[in-house]
Design a protein around this nucleic acid. Structure first.
Length: 298
DNA sequence: TATAATGTTAGACT
DNA sequence: AAGTCTAACATTAT
C-alpha cells in the first residue's frame, strides 16, 4: 500500500511522537512477521526473561527498555533508531499500516488500562509496541510486512538518490541505455530508484508525457530530465497531501490523505483524460495494472 | 467464482 | 553473465 510519500508521511509523524520514548513492551500477534518468522510463540508478550532461547524473538526482545532516538526513511523502509545502536527496520509491503494511539488520560488524571493492550486493537493487528506515552500498532491484513531488528554495527545498504530531490537524470539515462524492459517497470526498480511504486510510476509518466510501454533504453536524455522533474513534483505534492487514500491508506493517526484528488490516470480506466479529453486505458505490465492516456503519452 | 489490490523476491529462462 | 519474466507470498473486497 505505501509508496515513498506515504512512508515519508509516517516517518514525519513518528518523529513527532517517538523520539525520547522508551520501549516498554512488545506484543507479537503474528508469529510469521519478518525475522521473527520462526518464532514459536503466538501472541507473545515480550519482556526481558520472557523469551525462550531460539524462539526467534531474541533480537526483538533486545529493544525493550531502550529509547527511540529518531525515525528515518530509506526508500520504502522505516528505520527506528534505537538506543545502543539498534535499528528496527520496518517495511509495510502491500497492506501494512501503522497506527499510533496516545495513552488516553482519564479525567481524574489516571491512564486507561484498556488502551494499553492488544485486546482493544483493531482487526489485523500484528505487532504492538508500547511506549509510556502510547502504543504503536502494525496492522497488516495480508501479512507481507516485515520487521527486522538489526545489530549495532549494521548500516543499511547504500541508497540511490532520493527521488524527492529529483531523479538523477544523467545517471538513469546511462543505466537505462542497456535496458529493454518497459520504462514503467524500470521506474519501479527499487535498486535504481528507491520509493516509486505503482500509483506514482503511472502518475509520473503521465506528467512527463511518456508512454509506459516504451523500453527504458528508448528514452532520450531530454525525456529523462522531464521524467526527473515530474517525479519530484508528483512525489512532493503527494507528501504535502499526506499520501493517496484509494481505499485503506491512513496516516499514523488514522487520517486519510488527499492526493487521490490529484490523480490523473491511476485507476481511471475508461474515464476522460483531463488534458486531452481522450480515454484513459488500463493495461497489465509485470502483473501490475498500468493506467495511461495513449494520446498524451508518446 | 474470478479478479485485482499502493510490494518484493526466488528461481527459471534467455 | 546480466537482463527479464513469472509465480509465490496471504487476505480482502468487488
Amino acid at each position: 500500500m505505501p509508496e515513498l510519500p506515504e512512508v515519508e508521511t509516517l516517518c514525519r509523524q513518528l518523529n513527532t511522537v517517538l523520539p525520547g520514548e522508551k520501549i516498554i513492551q512488545i506484543e507479537v500477534l503474528d508469529p510469521r512477521l519478518g525475522n521473527i518468522a520462526r518464532a514459536k510463540v503466538d501472541g507473545a508478550v515480550i519482556f526481558p526473561g520472557s523469551v525462550p532461547k531460539d524462539s526467534g524473538l531474541e533480537k526483538v526482545a533486545g529493544l525493550i527498555g531502550r529509547r527511540v532516538e529518531a525515525v528515518t526513511r530509506r526508500g520504502k523502509y522505516i528505520h527506528l533508531q534505537v538506543e545502543g545502536g539498534l535499528t528496527a527496520a520496518l517495511h509495510l509491503r502491500m497492506s501494512g499500516r501503522l497506527l499510533y494511539r496516545p495513552k488516553a488520560a482519564l479525567e481524574n488524571g489516571r491512564h486507561d488500562p484498556n488502551l494499553q493492550n492488544s485486546g482493544s486493537c483493531p482487526p489485523f493487528s500484528r505487532l504492538v509496541i508500547a511506549f509510556s506515552s502510547g502504543t504503536l500498532v502494525l496492522l497488516d491484513p495480508r501479512r507481507f510486512a516485515t520487521f527486522v531488528v538489526q545489530p549495532p554495527a549494521w548500516s543499511a545498504p547504500a541508497l540511490p538518490d532520493d527521488p524527492l530531490q529529483g531523479l538523477p537524470a544523467r545517471r538513469l539515462w546511462k543505466i537505462a541505455r542497456t535496458r529493454r524492459l518497459p520504462v514503467k517497470s524500470f521506474l519501479m526498480d527499487q535498486r535504481l530508484i528507491a520509493g516509486i511504486g505503482n500509483i506514482y510510476a503511472c502518475e509520473i509518466l503521465f506528467a512527463a508525457g511518456i508512454d509506459p510501454r516504451r523500453p527504458a533504453c528508448s528514452l532520450s536524455a531530454t525525456e529523462w530530465r522531464k521524467a526527473s522533474k515530474s517525479a519530484a513534483a508528483i512525489l512532493r505534492r503527494a507528501v504535502d497531501c499526506r499520501g493517496t487514500t484509494m481505499s485503506d491508506w491512513r496516516d499514523l493517526f488514522g487520517c486519510s490523505g488527499t492526493n487521490q484528488d490529484h490523480l490523473e490516470v491511476y485507476s481511471r480506466q475508461g474515464e476522460t483524460c483531463r488534458r486531452c479529453s481522450g480515454r484513459i486505458e488500463r493495461i497489465t505490465q509485470g502483473g501490475r495494472g498500468t493506467w495511461f492516456c495513449p494520446s498524451c503519452q508518446k
